[in-house]
Write a protein that binds this DNA or RNA. Structure first.
Lengths: 346, 346
DNA sequence: TTGAGAAATTGGAACGTTCCAATTCAGATA
DNA sequence: TATCTGAATTGGAACGTTCCAATTTCTCAA
């Protein structure tokens, strides 16, 4: 409630002003603006001329208030610094805008207090619906509350443990499974995994995929190969440094995501190692930059832009039919092989 | 006007309902919500209890209508696929949110028609102000119109040729000048420039900086060294391929921006060249990823996040004082030397 | 010329707030 | 007891739209 306010300086031109200018009633103007067929063409034309003559701009807030509708949707993103989320955001925004909606966007930066304030703010603005990528450790109560407030909610990427929500995400386990299997197929046997330990379901699933692939190929999992690092470029550097320091050094690493992988590329290069020849790396996400890194990165493509578009579609469907049962869309990852994952050097 | 509408299903709880429940008038409730000192503490407490008991949520749209105010600001970005803009967006959003504003965000993808629709849409929603990074070839008229509509406007990155607007950007010419001089200082003489030709002021300025540095150091500028490519990773690849095909091959390249530079890193790597040893590259922007590429990229840091924050501050100031003369903030670029720009190989 | 029916237009209440002016209520003073 | 004061509370108009019901205007057949 304690918010800055800004007075609109000039008294704004309303539908009534247009009505006067055109010599009709405000009801007529309203109908013209809505393109109603009830109005005689000449009258409509006259009104339209007055609109441009006066420089009238439609007040959607007033209309929405009366109509109890909204063309605003909220998008809440936890980490825009990661291109994965930026690409997803682009996918969402595009789809929503094309469908006639406009996006209230907020970035939580993984901070729960910010996320909470953002969500109430979006409710106060009567967002028609919400797409949320929850911050870590988002309490189930928060989701429930906004859900029960009656505002359609689509969750992306991080699936809540409890409750049934519309959700779009990817099959993380099969993703890292494929990546690991690919490396094994290339001849690698000592393969590290770089990611956060105990950082929530997405982490667990990706690690599990790695472990399962190792196991199913008869490779004894060495616990030290699983490196606990933050999911950042810096984390990737740090993780690969640990790997390089091992006495019986792994020859490949499966990275939690693409930016971790990018970090390893930088670090390995600085150690004079050619990735793809001296060491193999795989990423996860399929962000655009993977195609142009040095070397281009083998990754698990879960099409961030497409995920965003799918989430937007899901929200649109939900808005059209609020009573429909919750939907769940899980993208199947695709292994994209590039130069970063060559066979081990002799 | 032709937009989807979504009826709010449940009759929403209003200030009047709260008033009934608390046994006071709606005026009293309103005053309590605003934290007015006029209301007796016990009354206020009673009202607050009713608020939570009923699950009342403040209707900011109605309030804004009555009050003719707005806490919404519009942010219009032309290319979110470029991390430069994503980082800038993060800087803006953070600052605005902390100041009590919420951001309507739209992505134009350099499309003028989209940009136009977006801007009117934001006016219809009565955004208190706008931060705009104009798409290429944005007609001056468009800016003027929204400006004259009385809505405070801050332009970022691409300065309009005509009119005086609040603006924040960077000194492009001195940026590429520094980058080029650095390469010359490293011993390079044949230096290419990779960027778009005739793509607007930013391009011209960056190219001019390169040309001036060459000239001032007595190096005859060879026109073929200036390569016309789109400002993308793919463009970087293409450009560097042209460079490598030259008979008397340059030993270094100044890139229009960081993502072009990233493209060259990928391509040069595929040609078996070690950047920093066999070829030198500089970027421009200073996006976060430059610190972790392979090799880490020497770049001209214009602090995208800071630019965003400065733009947000400028808008806040403009909102506080709409009549103040237009401000202009030009960030001075900083050369950040990393491994990608070593001396030429013997 | 009239009247019926269709077509076009309009008045006014409503949406959920804010805020001004007015009212009520205690307690203090004369 | 009557009056005054200041504090606390309240009624109702207003913000700019939509939309229902009602009214006006037009057209054409009888």
């Amino acid at each position: 409630m304690t918010q800055p306010q800004t007075k609109a300086k000039r008294a704004s031109i309303t539908i009534t002003d247009v009505a006067h200018a055109a010599g009709v009633s405000k009801s007529t103007v309203s109908l013209v603006l809505q393109g109603s067929p009830l109005i005689a063409p000449e009258t409509a034309e006259r009104v339209r001329q007055s609109v441009v003559a006066l420089g009238y701009v439609y007040n959607r807030r007033a209309a929405d208030l009366r109509r109890k509708s909204s063309n605003v949707v909220g998008i809440v993103i936890n980490d825009l610094g990661n291109p994965f989320f930026a690409e997803m955001l682009v996918g969402m925004e595009r789809r929503l805008f094309d469908a006639g909606y406009i996006s209230l966007m907020a970035h939580t930066d993984e901070r729960l207090d910010v996320q909470k304030r953002v969500l109430t703010s979006m409710q106060e603005y009567h967002a028609a619906g919400l797409i949320l990528c929850p911050a870590f450790d988002t309490p189930a109560g928060l989701l429930e509350r906004t859900h029960h407030a009656g505002i359609p909610l689509v969750i992306v990427v991080r699936e809540p443990a409890a409750g049934s929500y519309d959700f779009v995400g990817a099959n993380h386990e099969s993703g890292t499974f494929e990546a690991t299997r690919h490396l094994i197929g290339q001849g690698h046997r000592r393969i590290a995994f770089l990611g956060r330990i105990g950082g929530g379901p997405v982490y667990e699933q990706r690690r599990t995929g790695y472990e399962r692939a190792m196991m199913e190929n008869g490779i004894a999992a060495v616990p030290e190969w699983i490196i606990d690092i933050p999911p950042t470029r810096e984390g990737g550097r740090e993780g690969i440094r640990q790997v390089l320091a091992m006495p019986l050094r792994p020859t490949a690493a499966v990275c939690y995501n693409d930016i971790v992988a990018f970090g390893t590329l930088g670090e390995l290069g600085e150690h004079g190692l050619v990735v793809g020849r001296d060491f193999a790396i795989t990423g996860f996400d399929g962000v655009a930059a993977t195609a142009h890194s040095n070397p281009p990165l083998t990754t698990i493509d879960v099409r961030p832009g497409e995920q965003g578009a799918v989430a937007a579609d899901m929200l649109l469907k939900r808005l059209a039919d609020p009573a429909a049962p919750p939907r769940r869309h899980i993208l199947e990852p695709r292994l994209v092989v590039r130069q970063s994952s060559g066979p081990p050097s002799a």
